[in-house]
Amino acid sequence: MARRRAKAAPKGKDEDVRTVAMLVTAGIISLVVAISVILAPIPQVGPDEGNQAPDFVADAYNGFGWNEYRLSDNYDWDWNGSSDSKWMLIYFMDTDCPYCWVDGDEMSQLHSQWSDRVNFVTVAAELSIPNHDSTRGEIEAFRDKTSYFGCNSDRDDCIDRPGTPNDWPYIDDRSMTIMNKWGLSGTPVSFILEPDGTVAWNKNKHQGQGGDGEELSEALQRLVGGQ
């Protein structure tokens, strides 16, 4: 009597091909990553001196209203170290920070001295500290020195801020997005950027532990004044 044999289902290979597949995948990825990096090296981005400053887009108050502001729009990418392009001073502050309140005088003086060579930008953050709640109205009043009670930890009217009204952009960073991107946790902190956006001076490096104690005014004189 003839016996009917069921057709055997196709059987997989004896060896596990997944290891080979993984090695091939790793090889291809390494090649793609290597070619990408050769085509365009990974830039060093961060607040440290010598790095490209982290770019940002946010709303800025210019004295008339709030408009979108992109930091890198102010760069001169072709700067070769000798042209007359403007440097940048980025000042991180909080309208309720007592040190920032006191700094108002120095910032006004520095602006009157360097505004023809340096673009000033203030980033107004809102630190997670009691009485540091801020509003756009408070930022506007701090910049313009107009009446708004609530500046300096809710102790003062903004019109009494030391210094003169500022005529440079104030960025709204109450969400702390830019502060976090720059790795900052406190204010005031200032940075000087070369015209192409490279960080030339970081206050935390000079005035922090182990720093040389160089002040912002001295740094401006050394970096921009010496040009």
């Binding site: 793609v32 070619i35 990408s36 085509l39 365009a40 830039p43 490209q52």
Partner: peptide, 12 residues
């Protein structure tokens, strides 16, 4: 990979 390279060059 190509868009990553564009990304890196645009930062500069």
């Amino acid at each position: 990979g190509w868009t990553w390279a564009i990304h890196n060059s645009m930062i500069m």
